[in-house]
Design a protein around this nucleic acid. Structure first.
Length: 264
DNA sequence: GTCTGCGCCCTACACTCATG
DNA sequence: CATGAGTGTAGGGCGCAGAC
């Protein structure tokens, strides 16, 4: 496989157009067009859906992951001579806010690029090739990845019985609806920050679900009440199966960091 | 050293599509 | 309908490797 063509393909998907990819690669749009055409000819499949923005076809999606994996291995090889590999990871906000960062601190070598998303959607970034590893609630293994069970994060419904509103992290957040369907028609406040989300409950803006060890501390301090319902969300660590030493080391650190915080 | 074939990239131009 | 942005195609130039 021609790596220039692969890099061009990745640039088209990253930038969303042939022209932007051409600018990034310092070639003309025509050269980009011809590289993509040649790659598609050699693969025998259409890889790019020419739309605004350009996106990978299902056949192209596998190649996006491969391109990212090649880029990671190339960076690792180069960075062994310099220092610092960039690792992109997608994590749900609660994990990032609570137990996840010590895992990164335990593996200080690479440069990290963190993304946050709802745990039911983080695997999508893995599938698209935008992330090399993910903390996810999705237990179906993404093609080309390895999966490790981390344990379940227990969420506790917290607030005050008189609360007239519900607090959600964002529009993807369905935890409150799952834990208490009867209250799902309440007015909703969206608070897209893990720390602000908990602060909103403390201030009486409404009720919401809180990771259990934060809830335990706040309830003991009388900041809000346990509303008597909880939900366990199993979490998994999925990462590219490419024999990357950094990802293997990080996996061990993530499992070690999750063990004391998540229920087995 | 010269010729030839090949691959890559360029320019020019045609075409499509969205927008006003 | 005019315009501009983006993409595809044709034809040509250039560099490189192999054969002679």
């Amino acid at each position: 496989m021609d790596f220039a063509q692969l890099a061009t393909f990745q640039a088209v998907i990253d930038t969303g157009s042939f022209e932007a990819a051409a600018r990034e690669l310092h070639v003309t749009p025509s050269a980009v067009s011809q590289r993509i055409k040649a790659l598609e000819r050699s693969v025998g499949q259409v890889l790019v859906r020419r739309a605004k923005p350009c996106v990978a076809t299902p056949a192209g999606a596998a190649l996006v992951r491969f391109a990212g994996q090649v880029a990671l291995l190339e960076r690792e090889a180069l960075d062994q001579a310099r220092d610092g590999t960039r690792v992109s990871i997608v994590v749900n906000a609660d994990s990032l806010h609570t137990w996840f960062l010590p895992a990164l601190a335990a593996v200080p070598g690479p440069q990290y690029e963190l993304h946050t998303d709802d745990e039911h959607y983080t695997a999508d970034l893995l599938r698209s090739g935008s992330a090399m590893a993910a903390v996810t609630a999705d237990k179906s293994v993404v093609q080309g990845c390895r999966i490790e069970k981390l344990g379940a994060m227990r969420y506790v419904a917290c607030g005050r019985p008189e609360d007239k509103a519900m607090i959600l992290y964002d529009r993807k957040d369905r935890l409150q609806h799952r834990i208490w369907p009867d209250k799902s028609d309440m007015p909703i406040h969206y608070v897209p920050s893990a720390s602000a989300f908990i602060e909103a409950i403390r201030l009486g803006l409404g009720w919401g679900v809180v990771p259990e060890w934060i809830a335990r501390e706040d309830i003991a301090a009388g900041r809000y009440q346990d509303l008597g319902r909880h939900l366990d969300v199993p979490l998994y660590w999925q990462y590219w199966r490419i024999g990357s030493a950094v990802l293997e080391e990080l996996t061990a650190a993530v499992k070690a960091a999750a063990a004391p915080r998540l229920r087995s």
